[in-house]
Computed example of a mutant assay.
Amino acid sequence: MKLEEIISVALEAGAKILEVYGSKDLKVQSKKDDSPLTLADQQSHGTIVKGLKALNPGIPILSEEGKHLEYGDRKDWTYFWLVDPLDGTKEFIKRNGEFTVNIALIHQGHPVLGVIYAPVLDTLYVAKKGLGSFKLEKATQKRKKVGDGFTKAAMKLPLNKKEKQISAVASRSHLSKETEEYLNMVKEKVGEIDITSAGSSLKLCLVAEGTADVYPRFAPTMEWDTAAGHAIVTCAGGTVTQPYSGEPLMYNKQNLLNPWFIVRRDGFNL
């Protein structure tokens, strides 16, 4: 299957989200864990599942809003899609635009392809193992012009950045005490740092492109929150590792909850 076909699925899901985003009633519900669920989550999920099954019905799909199979039913998957139909539902409800569509392809526990689309920003991040990571702004408009040749219109990541003050990105909705302690440790080593807040998987994308040097996450996330961004970071030369062991995040674990992790851009070794 072509990467461009996955991009088309993500853009279609983004369009469904924007339809709800522009309405007066977001139809917000609460899931069993008290996290919010909107009509946009559900419509994006349906669009992505339909699109991915049409491309390759043999690859199973694990989506935040879908049925979560027991570990015994999925432990032998070689390849599978890992999807967050609307990452950053809280940001969606706040209407601040910082939410994304996340689609990742996992091979033997590792993300090998990632597509992240921010519908309000109309910005697309794409990565594939062996190809690299890319950023495409005004994605809908440019896709109409270039069709499948998106890499020619996109910017290769990481972007060339001038030397600057060390910068970190942190969660807008989940800034924990441990995260603050880590950031204070970085300050002690390098001096003042620039700290930016952002929602959803955009934090990983900012590190992948080099806008941020590091993103520490000492708060709960699920596998579908990070998989696509993990692919984009690693294909841009960065790392997504656990803070104490240095091991990378793995996917399709028995417990789909991620351990704490630190995302570093290419060349940042602190």
Results as ranks from 00 to 15, higher is better:
3 L>F: 07
3 L>V: 15
9 V>I: 15
11 L>Y: 06
14 G>W: 00
21 Y>N: 08
25 D>M: 10
27 K>Y: 08
30 S>P: 07
31 K>L: 07
40 A>C: 07
44 S>W: 01
45 H>R: 03
50 K>M: 13
61 I>Q: 04
65 E>L: 06
67 K>M: 11
68 H>M: 10
72 G>K: 12
74 R>H: 05
78 T>Q: 14
83 V>N: 00
84 D>A: 07
84 D>K: 01
87 D>T: 04
87 D>W: 01
89 T>Y: 00
90 K>T: 11
99 F>I: 07
107 H>N: 14
108 Q>R: 14
109 G>C: 04
112 V>S: 07
120 V>C: 04
121 L>W: 07
123 T>V: 12
123 T>D: 09
128 K>F: 04
132 G>H: 05
136 L>G: 01
137 E>A: 11
148 D>P: 12
153 A>P: 05
159 L>C: 06
160 N>M: 11
162 K>N: 12
163 E>Q: 11
163 E>F: 11
165 Q>A: 09
165 Q>S: 10
166 I>G: 05
170 A>T: 10
180 E>R: 14
186 V>D: 06
186 V>I: 14
187 K>V: 14
190 V>Q: 11
190 V>S: 11
191 G>C: 10
196 T>G: 09
196 T>M: 14
198 A>I: 13
199 G>F: 01
199 G>Y: 03
202 L>D: 03
204 L>K: 00
210 G>I: 01
211 T>A: 10
211 T>N: 08
212 A>D: 02
212 A>L: 06
215 Y>A: 08
217 R>I: 12
222 M>W: 14
225 D>T: 06
228 A>S: 08
235 C>I: 03
237 G>I: 02
243 P>H: 04
248 P>V: 07
258 N>H: 08
266 D>V: 10
268 F>E: 10
268 F>Q: 07
